[in-house]
Design a binder for these strands. Structure first.
Length: 334
DNA sequence: TCTGGGGTCCTCTTTCTC
DNA sequence: TCTGGAGAAAGAGGACCC
């Protein structure tokens, strides 16, 4: 289950006058400032606006779009409501971020289509929002099918559909294939999932290593036996900020880092975790991104200790270029 | 000229420990 | 005391996801 243009849909629900207008959610909502698009409404997508596009570029593509800030707390609230509805249909639910989930419906004595309609109706009734659903023998194929008929889609895929409906798709549609891998594959003249499936396993392993090579080989054939993960523990917590303008002011960088450390420590403290590895991240004006890490003797949620460790990391950088972003991450232990 | 923020996982290299 | 090797842990970077 994948919500349709989730952030934009939540905003349109709050402000019905936005319906039918191009709506772009991202950053602080000011398209003259730094930030990227989180979600574009389908209306905005017609102008070529999509997730991860710089807001300033989106504004050039569609100056009359409505630009709104990300109201994460509100989306989390609506998301929790949706997840409750889903858990009511099958408790075997895997959360995949804020607007997606996998449901194991193997043991529900109804047809796939019946269950899917039930989910769509329940979400519509409970939240007023639409979603797209893909039903397939495994998570990999369900994920791809959920995107075949967006928005408000319902796609049921059987193993027989692999060659006709999946193989013609671009490799980029495969979960785990991003822009880099797409580029490598294009150089190998592999453009579709079918062409990937027609590539010898040895060739893929040679190019991508045993782990990822094997994954590509199996995924292109629709093979995925990964289980649903219904519960997991976070492994890290982090905060990072991009400056509105790049800075070489060490004081400003240090002040920012101290604030980020405070936020992340408060976060782990109230969630009941302790940190052991402290990593500081610096992105320079040329987008070069470096990290420096240190490991504490004991896991802790003590602000002073973690701040000291973070400043130790900061001291390891040669700050010769202007700094664009500062971040801090804590490796966690319960 | 532009490129967020919160994560996970993998790989490679270096360092530590036995 | 020196030396080497194996394996774990730490550190760094990169790709990917939502």
């Amino acid at each position: 289950m994948d919500m349709d243009a989730f952030f934009a849909a939540v905003e349109e629900r709050r402000r019905p006058e936005l319906a039918g207008r191009p709506v772009v959610i991202g950053g602080g909502g000011d398209p003259t400032k730094r930030g990227v698009v989180s979600t574009a409404s389908y209306e905005a997508r017609k102008f070529g606006i999509h997730s991860a596009l710089p807001l300033q570029t989106a504004r050039k593509l569609c100056p009359h779009a409505v630009f709104l800030p990300v109201d994460y707390e509100e989306y989390v609230r609506v998301s929790a409501q949706i997840k409750e509805i889903l858990r009511g249909i099958s408790p075997l639910m895997e959360d995949v971020g804020i607007d997606e989930a996998f449901l194991d419906i193997s043991d529900i004595p109804k047809s796939s289509e019946e269950i899917a309609r039930e989910i769509k109706e329940a979400i519509k009734a409970g939240t007023g929002l639409t979603c797209s659903i893909g039903i397939a023998p495994n998570k990999l194929l369900a994920k791809i099918s959920s995107e075949l008929q967006k928005p408000d889609g319902l796609t049921i895929l059987t193993p027989d559909d692999l060659e006709t409906r999946i193989w013609p798709l671009a490799v980029r549609k495969l979960w785990g294939v991003g822009p880099k891998t797409e580029g490598y594959l294009r150089e190998m003249a592999i453009l579709t999932i079918g062409e990937l499936a027609g590539t010898a396993k040895e060739i893929l392993i040679e190019h991508f290593g045993p782990s990822y090579g094997n994954y590509l080989y199996e995924a292109s054939r629709g093979i995925d036996d990964s289980p649903l993960v219904t519960h997991w523990e976070p492994k890290s917590a982090s905060r990072e900020t991009t400056f509105q303008t790049d800075t070489d002011n060490w004081q400003a960088i240090a002040r920012c880092l101290a604030e980020l450390v405070k936020e992340v420590v408060e976060d782990i403290h109230c969630r009941g975790y302790k940190g052991k590895q402290v990593t500081v991240k610096i992105r320079f004006s040329d987008f070069q991104t470096l990290t420096r890490a240190t490991t504490l003797k004991e896991p802790t949620d003590n602000l002073e200790l973690i701040r000291k460790a973070a400043f130790l990391c900061l001291a390891k950088f040669e700050l010769k270029k202007r700094v664009r972003l500062v971040g801090v991450r804590l490796g966690l232990i319960r």
